[in-house]
C-alpha cells in the first residue's frame, strides 16, 4: 500500500491563553486523507481551541500545523482555501438573505462567483426554498444548515464540524449524518467534535480523545471498540446454583445472589474462550435456558478513559 501523506499534520502544538490558561500542550495528530475523524472530549478539553488554531482563528503558542502540505501560518492562503469550518455557536448575520450570505462566503474564500454551485449546495441542504429569506427569520436548525452551506461554498477538501448536532432535532441530525457521508464519498476529509458518543460511533473511521489539552488516544473506531470494549456473557440458569463449581474457577464467573444467573466478563482477546467455557459449563452439569451478550458502548469507554487519567 502506498502511504498517502496525511491531509492535516499537527506537530507539538501548544496554546497558552493570555489569562495563563494552558488549553493545549504537545498535541501531535495526523488526519488521513478522506477519513471521518471524531474528536471526543469533555467540555473545556481543548477541542475547539485545536480546531480554531488549524482554521486560523486562534494563534498557536508553539508547534506546527500543515493542511494539505501547506503551513497554516507561512502559507495561510493555500491552507485556508482548502478548509471549511462550521462553528459551534450559531453565529450568523441577521439581515442578509441565505443566498447572499452563502455567496459572500464563497467570495471571501477567493472563489469567483458560481451560482450553479451555490444552488446545488442549497438544494443539498434543503435550503433552496429559503434562499430569499432573511437569516433572522430562520429556525435554529435552518441556521445550522446555513452555516454548513457557508462552510461548503468554496468547495473545501477539509471540513471541520464543531459540535454539528448540538441542540439539533433528530431529523436534522440524520440529514446531517447523511450529508457527511456524501461529502466523504466525494473525497472530503471530515473532522468533527461531538459530545454525542453515538454520533462518533455511527460516523467516524477513527476517534481521538482529548482531555485537559492533551490527546490521550487516537485509534480506529473498530479496534478501539475491540481493545477497550468490555463484553459480558450472561447465562440464565434452569436450576438454582449454590456456588460456582471449581471446574469453572479459571473463568472467574460471577454468580448472581439469586443463584440463577452466571456472568462472564471478557474483552476482545478472550473471545476465543467462549466455546470452551460453554463446553465446560455443560460438562459441569449446569443447564441454562437463555443467554445474552452485551458490549460496552463508546460512551463507557470514553468515560473510563477520561476518569482513569483525571
Amino acid at each position: 500500500m502506498i502511504h498517502m501523506p496525511s491531509i492535516i499534520s499537527v506537530a507539538d502544538l501548544s496554546k497558552t491563553y493570555k489569562s495563563g490558561l494552558s488549553a493545549l500542550s504537545g498535541i501531535n495528530l495526523e488526519i488521513e486523507r478522506g477519513e471521518i475523524f471524531a474528536l471526543l472530549g469533555p467540555n473545556g478539553a481543548g477541542k475547539t481551541t485545536l480546531i480554531n488554531i488549524i482554521c486560523g482563528i486562534v494563534t498557536p503558542s508553539g508547534g506546527k500545523v500543515t493542511a494539505d502540505g501547506h503551513d497554516i501560518i507561512t502559507d495561510y492562503r493555500a491552507a485556508r482555501t482548502k478548509i471549511g469550518l462550521v462553528p459551534q455557536e450559531l453565529t450568523t448575520s441577521a439581515f442578509e438573505t441565505v443566498w447572499a450570505t452563502v455567496s459572500f462566503s464563497r467570495g471571501l474564500f477567493g472563489k469567483p462567483a458560481n451560482p450553479a454551485i451555490i444552488e446545488k449546495i442549497l438544494k443539498d441542504l434543503s435550503l433552496w426554498d429559503k434562499r430569499d429569506s432573511k437569516i433572522r427569520q430562520l429556525s435554529g436548525g435552518m441556521k445550522r444548515r446555513v452555516l454548513i452551506a457557508k462552510a461548503l461554498a468554496h468547495e473545501p477538501t477539509i471540513l471541520f464540524l464543531d459540535e454539528p448536532t448540538a441542540g439539533v432535532d433528530v431529523e436534522l441530525r440524520r440529514d446531517m449524518w447523511n450529508m457527511v457521508r456524501k461529502l466523504r464519498e466525494a473525497g472530503v476529509t471530515i473532522i468533527l467534535t461531538t459530545h454525542y458518543i453515538d454520533e462518533a460511533e455511527e460516523m467516524a473511521d477513527r476517534i481521538g480523545v482529548i482531555n485537559k489539552g492533551q490527546i490521550i488516544l487516537v485509534e480506529e473506531k473498530a479496534s478501539l471498540m475491540r481493545k477497550l470494549g468490555r463484553k459480558q456473557l450472561s447465562l440464565q440458569l434452569h436450576d438454582k446454583l449454590e456456588s460456582v463449581p471449581d471446574a469453572l474457577a479459571s473463568y472467574k464467573l460471577e454468580l448472581a445472589p439469586s443463584g440463577l444467573e452466571l456472568t462472564y466478563t471478557y474483552d476482545a482477546q478472550a473471545e476465543s474462550r467462549i466455546p470452551n467455557l460453554l463446553t465446560a459449563i455443560s460438562g459441569a452439569g449446569i443447564v441454562f435456558k437463555d443467554l445474552h451478550t452485551s458490549q460496552s458502548s463508546l460512551e463507557d469507554i470514553f468515560v473510563n478513559l477520561v476518569s482513569n487519567r483525571a
Binding site: G56, I57, Y76, A78, T91, S93, S105, L108, F109
Partner: peptide
C-alpha cells in the same frame, strides 16, 4: 464591530485573506 459582536468574525479570520 458588528461581526465581532455577532461572532461572524470567525469567517473573516478563517478566510484566506490578508
Amino acid at each position: 464591530y458588528f461581526p465581532k459582536f455577532t461572532g461572524t468574525i470567525y469567517e473573516i479570520l478563517s478566510a484566506p485573506i490578508s
